[in-house]
Write a protein that binds this DNA or RNA. Structure first.
Lengths: 355, 355
DNA sequence: CTGAAAGCGCTAACAG
DNA sequence: CTGTTAGCGCTTTCAG
């Protein structure tokens, strides 16, 4: 006993006690009086194994709270049930992720992946270095990738697709696209929001958002289209080129307000932007919705609880997460995955009600 | 050539081309005319290797965009540079994660871990099944864990510590605690917020939050203490037992308002709650801060941009993330890690200004 | 249905 | 400084 204990110490096998030597497959095999092959098959639900044997091994494993060593499993089987989820950030401005939108998406992805027995490796990467995510795959770190937000990296994403990296992205469909996307119908979202404002009689609608980002671009296109449909001339001055981040947005809004350009409504590319704008405008004495109607985008949880409650465009995030995971599974099994668009709905609340 | 191609197809070695056979260490070794050991050492920065050789191998590896196979590395070396970050959710209510607070924390953790060359495995787990996270460690999936939020699971966390699982938690220090925590000074935060309201002349301060959660409990204790210090009697009726989630919070606030209990201020356990409360109260015709002063907690990005801008308690999240990672590193190397408290600051904005 | 044997790709003694 | 050798813990033919 004493000898054994000393041996343990010398070899760093245990922190304090022989018990903490991690139990492994061969231990189970020995205790069950079978070979490791049998244990392996039993634990993996192979149909080759006698039901009674499987049960016995499973029980044993559970009672010892045995967990299979994933490195060994992955190495040997060549599989990898870890998916990398990448939320690119715009360089310098790492804060965007604070947007509840991303968090919600992340949550849904985690749920979906867990349901399919995958793990989620979370990784931030500069949008401009998005090619770096190839390494995550090539090191065997992950078996596939989900990129949340395509920003302006269409070409680089195409490159990754050419390199056979299995991934899908949350974003819009673009021309000559070699990868699979799932995204909201940004054009329609922009159209719906703008149409709503126009139908309320608003004519001078400020658009707020970063037109370099693909998603926003498409929302803007919908905004323009709605103007055209209503035969309302659009004034390019009604634009606040704000990124997705709140801190600078505030500055941008204030600058816009200083210009004293007449406007009667505002459509922001995210709820966070919209709420920030409402704050700034209220502070400047503008009343919402009487003086300015405001529409946001995303329908984050809080949108319903601001004052006034925010009219916004909702995308079904749960379905989106599900679609992303499903499509990635197709890509992983070398099947073709069609890009998908999830529907967008206009949620009308008091920030646009007349009166 | 043709034969080769066929072989590839039969064996699933490649999707379309021989080139996509993943390059590995032995290939580099062959091309460099050295052994794999040398390549391994060179790539791992072993001091045993001739600088010139190292350079040559590094260049070769980069030019082939070689990525080391992590499963093999982990299996062989027994190390694991992946850290599991767990954000427990209260059962049924998976939405809490939407709170920007968690996202900010996650972002900082990702940054810190990346800096130390660790990967981040993101995992949601029901707070009530927090013992499940042992499996992440025992399967070799992660080398250590960071739990964000201790909720009411103190005893289970103690159990995990007894099982020698290496982890640290974001949360408060409790008695007979076997694990390391990093947390805000919740007591002080509660005290500061309440003191501020009292010093403004407010006397009937509603506390809003879920007293079952450890963090909130301590904030409440600070709230009580401040009352005592100011010799102000505290009315237990001034309490809205709201969880961290926004949707139900709204209901709870409305119910509270219906009771017509007199109050002149509100201290919420999170900014999200505070903002929701401001929305509800404004809708009921209460003016902020004239009729009701409001203080939140966390100082999320948007707090500054609501109307009125929200007075709140800020915790230095970057330092917090750093401390969590640093302490985990200590735990991993079997050193003792003291629990830590990061400072809290009162940020005064208009939601509490008199006038 | 089960076992024996051969590695997955890498690292780390040990021996030059 | 570099190569040889022996596995890490598991899966998977191939034989019974």
């Amino acid at each position: 006993m004493d000898v054994n204990r000393r041996f343990m110490q010398r070899t760093h096998m245990a922190k304090s006690d022989a018990e903490s030597k991690k139990i492994q497959m061969v231990d189970i095999a020995r205790m069950a009086g079978v070979s490791t092959s049998t244990v392996s098959r039993a634990l993996n639900g192979s149909p080759l194994i006698n039901e009674e044997t499987r049960q016995r091994i499973a029980d044993l494993a559970r009672s010892l709270s045995y967990s299979i060593n994933l490195s060994a499993k992955n190495l040997r089987s060549g599989e990898n049930r870890t998916i990398g989820v990448v939320i690119p950030y715009q360089d310098e401005i790492r804060q965007d992720v604070t947007d509840p939108f991303f968090m919600t998406m992340l949550g849904h992805l985690a749920d979906q992946l867990t349901k399919q027995n995958f793990d989620l490796l979370f990784s931030r990467i500069a949008a401009s270095h998005i090619e770096d995510l190839a390494q995550l795959y090539e090191s065997g770190r992950v078996g596939g990738l989900i990129v949340v937000g395509q920003w302006d990296q269409h070409e680089k994403l195409n490159d990754l697709a050419r390199r056979q990296i299995p991934f899908v992205v949350w974003g819009g469909q673009l021309s000559r696209q070699l990868y699979c996307t799932v995204g909201g119908d940004n054009f329609n979202g922009g159209y719906l929001a703008t149409q709503h404002l126009l139908s309320l009689g608003r004519r001078r609608i400020v658009f707020m958002g970063d037109k370099d980002a693909t998603e926003t671009q498409q929302r803007y296109a919908g905004y323009l289209q709605a103007h055209q449909a209503y035969k309302v001339a659009h004034d390019p001055a009604l634009y606040i080129p704000s990124p997705f981040t709140v801190a600078e947005a505030r500055v941008d809004i204030n600058e816009f307000l200083k210009k004293k350009i007449a406007f009667d409504s505002l459509f922001a590319a995210s709820d966070l932007l919209a709420i920030t704008a409402m704050g700034a405008m209220t502070q400047h004495g503008l009343r919402i919705p009487q003086d300015v109607s405001v529409v946001g985008y995303d329908d984050i949880g809080m949108a319903e609880h601001t004052y006034p409650p925010l009219t916004t465009i909702r995308q079904p995030m749960d379905l989106a997460g599900q679609a992303l995971v499903q499509n990635l599974m197709r890509v992983l099994s070398d099947k073709h995955a069609d890009s998908e668009v999830v529907k967008t709905d206009l949620i009308i609340r008091n920030s646009t009600c007349p009166v």
